[in-house]
Design a protein around this nucleic acid. Sequence first.
DNA 1: CGCGCTGTTGAAACTTGTCAAAGTTTGTGG
DNA 2: CCACAAACTTTGACAAGTTTCAACAGCGCG
Lengths: 247, 247
Amino acid sequence: MPPNGSSAKLSLEVVKTACSNCNLRELCLPLGLNDQELEKLDEMVASRRRLKRGDHLYHAGQAFDSIYAIRSGFFKTDVLIEDGRDQVTGFQMAGELLGLDGIGSEMHTCNAVALENSEVCVIPFSHLEGLSREIHSLQHHFHKVMSREIVRDHGVMLLLGTMRAEERLATFLLNLSQRFTARGFSPAEFNLRMTREEIGSYLGLKLETVSRAFSRFQEDGLAAVQQKHIRILDTPGLKMLMTHQRG
Amino acid sequence: MPPNGSSAKLSLEVVKTACSNCNLRELCLPLGLNDQELEKLDEMVASRRRLKRGDHLYHAGQAFDSIYAIRSGFFKTDVLIEDGRDQVTGFQMAGELLGLDGIGSEMHTCNAVALENSEVCVIPFSHLEGLSREIHSLQHHFHKVMSREIVRDHGVMLLLGTMRAEERLATFLLNLSQRFTARGFSPAEFNLRMTREEIGSYLGLKLETVSRAFSRFQEDGLAAVQQKHIRILDTPGLKMLMTHQRG
DNA sequence: CGCGCTGTTGAAACTTGTCAAAGTTTGTGG
DNA sequence: CCACAAACTTTGACAAGTTTCAACAGCGCG
């Protein structure tokens, strides 16, 4: 069903995967565009790229020229520095954009890795800027997306700066749940695509601490945890934990 | 369209404070614009606003319609949540932009507070988007500024997620030093505008821990610390501390 | 079907937080 | 201009939370 490099029924494939037909358009760049504008956007999306689990979409240091919209799959981004430190800066799912970090220095500043087989739309950044000058709503929406990324990062800082291990993990699970819900999946039951170590890196914790926090949730009846399979049993309980008054 | 509300020597004031004459233009939005473009930018800057120490430039929750360029002074931004948690998300100085957080939700998502008497240029965001569609280099530069903010936030996540107290503080001091240098001030000697508690909030530490880390730097000959006055004595030493191999 | 990666659990060590007290600076009003 | 109060900073002792180290269990891939 999905597109690939094959030859024949090409136009059909194009239609199938164009923004105008993409079921993610309400989550992605096309949001708020009319039909005519959508057509222009379709032209802008230069190509698509498939990645297998473990593949890098881009590496830190690599020249920047495109941003990517996730069609399907799941990614992590991380920064790695010489001394061995490694911080996962985010997990991204369908409809979200990757590569915004590269605009500032014309070079990617983090690594983007597929955590499962995935497909992305390649959006040459100069095209996006060009089209932004024509389509006001695209321009504005793109600015909103960047701004929200900044706000999201502030939320992570709040988490890393002020929360304890279990509060962090509760926040993380609720955030995932909310994003799965927005994509039509179950709010309560899902499979984690990342390891305990990756969760820990994102949350500023060691993998053992993450594991212990999961066990604690299980004991307390907040969630059923079986390796990567999570079932949230008590959303209000997790919310209370997340916003726990300190002191 | 003219800047401040006063009447008489108005044009003189305009010249005095216009972007085209501002000595921060290489640090601020005007970067890379030619004279003609600069003139248009001058028109865009609707007004200026002076703030006394402790004044809020904006509050979380307040409607967003402008971003702000700092002409002089020093600010902090922070997010505050119901349960009492409070995270300083950044310290901003002359030439830097404030308010980018508000674009996404058309509402400010953090508080911006002047840490000393300050002055900002008010840039109505719709004007900026309009002018961005005319002036490519302004558009591109603005995108770079937003992207760099994202990259900066990733750096803070790395700090909060992986570094110990002294490493965090060393990173903080070196960052300040570098930014003061870019503004023509001494790289080695400066006054902190923020309290230990604010530094701690930014670095995810308690004020006592910050104070102890400063004392440690003093003992180790890395810096001379007298309350808010800092003199960096051993930059390489701080850098080594910052990038300390763990284990 | 076993080897390796991932996850769980325990005990000890370490870092940072908490609480408390005292010292210092700053700002204000007399 | 001094005195006093408030805000900020420093330091110590102890407690709490997280990491470290280690051992073992489970799942999945080749």
